[in-house]
Design a binder for these strands. Structure first.
Length: 611
RNA sequence: GCGCGUGUAGCUCAGUUGGAUAGAGCGUUGGCCUCCGGAGCCAAAGGUCGCAGGUUCGACUCCUGCCACGCGCACCA
């Protein structure tokens, strides 16, 4: 009922939008650049000051000076200088000389071609305490408001385990879901299960041929597949049996359907147990099979538009400037995944009317998506320009490519289990050291959070397009740039607040209280927090979770330096004797904790209170 | 062969639409526990940013060529 209504609406929408022609410029430039509204107030004030004093209307780039002594916000005067036909240092000097302090910015200094602004620290602390502990938000919801983003991620094949090489799509996709939600977009996270195709015919043929031990599980099903591939190598005619069974499945044969359903159910139960460990859910679990009823219509549509031709017995779509055509129907008359992807793309458009439709799939399938989007464009769907392949590099294990086809496979859950084992003893040792009462069940839960977090973070940290070579020892390493380091920082924040014994309800954090903050360590932390919103917006726009990973490490580093400084200089300690000052500092710790928790949540990591 | 991607410290990686002295982690060396939890902090050593040209006031960043490695290129997904 609801679906019908939605579809009806969006079909109208389609016609409506189509009449406006190519929306690419508008639709792509908006989400792809971090809009000025993602910048914090202070950075914007700095850019405005330069624009006002120089009289040059431009959206000046604001960055952090290379060294904090220089200032808080830097604006280079290159563009303004060009417009005014003056030397950049002269323009910078003029801006600095004419600058009048405001509520947000206290000073401006020219250093060469740069103007370095200093924030009014009191205003900075006030703003971020309101944004984290009050009703505000560090991430402006306006950035993604009104956008609808479909994200196809994880999407494993049934009848196989969730293997380690699935982790990047799963983890990157999950982070993108959270990033887009964080900026206020409506997000549909989609698990496009590989539950259709010749492969599944092979599994059925194998099952009929050899049977399998009961109770049937994914291992047994996958063994059938592997055995079938072996048999194919020995006798190529065996392959035909698989094709026959897939044809039966597509033709609606009852036995084939029942068998397929069983394999699918068993597989999904297995996948779900792994997703649960990562705390991942999907808004839509819709396999390729779901599009099967629509395929004849899709093919007819493509034919009507003159896009289908025959080649070597198969039906293909020939694309301009492409060496190979898109295969739509095999010579056996069965469909291929490109056909189903066309149907899925149309379904998503008709159902959701997306602003962006992301496919978080490994780089090896770049050609497939390039051709898919091209085909959609040829078919007249201008919304194909809103579809984006979000590619990522290979996962290797000990330098070797992984995957079910290469036989080099490591189960995701096995990797998690090893990481958890690695972490658990330390959790127990720490529990004894900490005052808090911790039950065994709690320790176990935290060990899972930290072990899984280590693996998740390690796969998010490098840029998407880089290959990652998996090394268990390194991935579960807890020191340095790791998920557990972030989680540890969070636990320390909670611990300090717990021991603080001072209330930090937002209403009690008066200007007088916050005025007690101000030393360089405290400010370094605050200054970092001010960047959170822009980082999240940029990571969402670029579909690059690693931007947030690196930011989180820097935030945790700033925080660590602050509380370590208290070891040598008692005057810097958060839990100082002066209760008003203590309250102000604990509030800042609370702001850090809230931000670490939000950031960890976006990345898909838990934030333990003790660990 | 064609296409896509990657090349930054011994190793793993950052480097924000071209901008200030190219930064982290691991490892190495040396410091910091009567210290709010040492999964931490500080310091030192370590770089022809693959190579060669070009554009620019300015290039790790943009363009061209080359080299190395990886991946993809018709009936699997």
């Amino acid at each position: 009922m609801v679906t019908t209504t939605l579809q009806g609406q969006s079909i109208q929408l389609l016609g409506f939008r189509a009449s406006f022609g190519d929306p690419r410029g508008l639709l792509h430039s908006a989400p792809m650049s971090s809009s000025p509204s993602a910048q914090n107030l202070f950075a914007r004030a700095a850019a405005d000051a330069v624009a006002r004093i120089t009289g040059v209307a431009a959206d000046f780039k604001v960055e952090a000076p290379p060294r904090p002594e220089l200032g808080d916000f830097a604006v280079g005067c290159f563009a303004a200088a060009k417009a005014l036909k003056q030397a950049p240092p002269a323009v910078a000097a003029k801006v600095a000389a004419e600058f009048q302090p405001t509520e947000l910015l206290s000073a401006a200094t020219a250093t060469g071609p740069f103007v370095n602004f200093r924030a009014n620290r009191a205003a900075g602390f006030r703003w971020l305490i309101d944004a984290t502990l009050g009703g505000g938000a560090l991430v402006p919801q306006t950035v993604g408001a009104g956008q609808t983003v479909c994200i196809d991620f994880s999407s494993p094949n049934i009848s196989k385990h969730l293997a380690y090489h699935h982790i990047r799509s799963t983890v990157i996709g999950h982070a993108l879901v959270n990033l887009n939600r964080a900026i206020g977009a409506r997000v549909i996270g989609i698990n496009h299960l590989g539950d259709w195709g010749t492969t599944h015919g092979m599994v059925m043929a194998a099952y009929k041929k050899w049977g399998a031990p009961e109770p049937l599980d994914v291992t047994a099903i996958n063994d059938l597949y592997v055995r079938f591939r072996e048999a194919m190598k020995a006798d190529p005619t065996v392959e035909q049996e698989g094709r026959v069974w897939f044809k039966k499945l597509e033709d609606g044969d009852a036995e084939a359907r029942a068998l397929w359903q069983r394999f699918r159910d068993i597989s999904w139960a297995e996948f779900e147990s792994a997703y649960q460990m990562m705390d991942i859910t999907f808004d839509e679990v819709r396999g390729e099979s779901a599009y099967e009823p629509e395929l004849p219509g899709v093919l007819a549509m493509l034919r009507d538009k003159g896009l289908v031709s025959e080649s070597e017995g198969a039906q293909v779509a020939v694309l301009p400037d492409e060496k190979n055509p898109v295969l739509l129907v095999t010579r056996d008359g069965t469909t291929l995944y490109a056909t189903r992807d066309v149907a899925a793309a149309m379904y998503r458009w008709n159902t959701y009317g997306f602003t962006r439709s992301l496919y978080v799939v490994d780089r090896g399938q770049g050609l497939h998506f390039k051709q898919l989007f091209k085909l959609l464009a040829l078919a007249g769907y201008e919304w194909s320009s809103r579809c984006e392949h979000v590619p990522f590099g290979l996962v290797r294990i000990a330098g070797k490519k992984t995957g079910t086809r290469t036989g080099n496979i490591t189960l995701l859950k096995a990797v998690f289990a090893e990481a958890i084992d690695e972490v658990a003893p330390m959790m127990r040792a720490n529990a004894a050291k900490i005052d808090a009462q911790i039950s065994d069940a709690e320790i176990e839960r935290t060990a899972t959070m930290v072990g899984v977090g280590a693996i998740v973070f390690a796969n998010l940290l490098p840029q998407r397009e880089k290959d990652v070579d998996f090394d268990l020892e390194k991935v579960t390493s807890l020191s340095g740039d790791s998920g557990p380091y972030l989680q540890y920082s969070h636990a320390r924040c909670v611990s300090i607040q717990r021991k603080g014994g001072v209330p930090i309800e937002h209403a009690t954090l008066t200007p007088e209280v916050l005025a007690r903050l101000g030393n360089d360590h405290e400010w370094a932390v605050a200054r970092r927090l001010l960047d959170f919103g822009e980082i999240v917006a940029r990571a969402a726009a670029a579909s690059e979770p690693h931007l947030l990973c690196h930011y989180m490490l820097e935030l945790a580093g700033d925080f660590s330096r602050w509380y370590t400084a208290g070891n040598e200089d008692a005057g810097l300690r958060v839990l100082c004797e002066d209760l008003e000052l203590r309250r102000a500092r604990v509030a800042l710790v609370g702001a850090v904790q809230a931000t670490l928790k939000q950031g960890l949540g976006i990345l898909g990591l838990g934030a333990p209170d003790v660990m």
